Amino acid sequence: MAYAAYVFDAYGTLFDVHAAVRRHAAAIGPDGQQLSEIWRAKQLEYSWTRSLMREWRDFWALTEEALDYAFERVPSADKALRADLLEAYFELDCYREVPAVLKALKATGARVAILSNGSVPMLNSAVRNAALDTVIDDVFSVDELRTFKTDPAVYDMVTTAYRLYPGAVSFQSSNRWDVAGAAKFGFRTVWVNRARMPDEYRDLSPSLILPDLNGVE
Rank of each mutant, 00 (worst) to 15 (best):
A4H: 05
V7F: 05
V7R: 03
F8V: 01
F8Q: 03
A10V: 08
G12L: 06
T13F: 12
L14T: 06
V17M: 12
H18G: 10
A20F: 00
V21C: 11
R22G: 13
H24Q: 05
H24T: 04
A25L: 07
I28T: 05
G29W: 09
P30E: 09
D31K: 11
D31V: 02
D31I: 01
G32R: 03
G32F: 06
Q33W: 03
Q34E: 08
Q34I: 02
Q34Y: 06
L35E: 04
S36Q: 05
R40I: 00
Q43F: 08
E45N: 07
Y46H: 10
Y46R: 08
S47A: 12
T49R: 14
R50W: 11
S51F: 11
L52E: 03
T63D: 07
T63L: 04
E64Y: 04
A66T: 02
L67H: 02
D68P: 03
A70S: 12
R73G: 11
R73F: 08
V74P: 05
D78I: 08
R82K: 15
R82L: 06
A83W: 07
A83R: 14
A83Q: 15
A88C: 11
A88R: 09
Y89R: 10
D93C: 08
C94T: 02
Y95G: 12
Y95M: 11
E97Y: 05
V98L: 05
V98C: 06
P99L: 09
A100G: 00
L105G: 10
K106M: 04
T108C: 01
T108Y: 09
T108L: 06
T108G: 00
G109Y: 15
R111M: 08
L115W: 05
N117T: 01
G118K: 02
S119Q: 13
S119C: 11
P121G: 11
S125C: 03
A126S: 14
V127Y: 05
A131H: 15
V139I: 15
V139S: 08
S141I: 00
D143R: 01
T147S: 07
K149E: 01
K149V: 01
T150F: 00
T150S: 08
P152D: 00
A153T: 10
T160L: 04
R163F: 03
R163G: 08
Y165A: 06
G167N: 06
S170R: 14
F171R: 10
F171H: 10
S173V: 04
R176A: 14
V179N: 03
A182I: 06
G186D: 09
R188S: 14
R188V: 11
V190Q: 10
V192L: 06
R194H: 14
M197P: 01
E200V: 01
E200M: 08
S205H: 04
P206V: 09
S207K: 09
I209V: 15
I209R: 13
D212N: 14
D212C: 07
N214W: 00
N214R: 13
V216M: 11
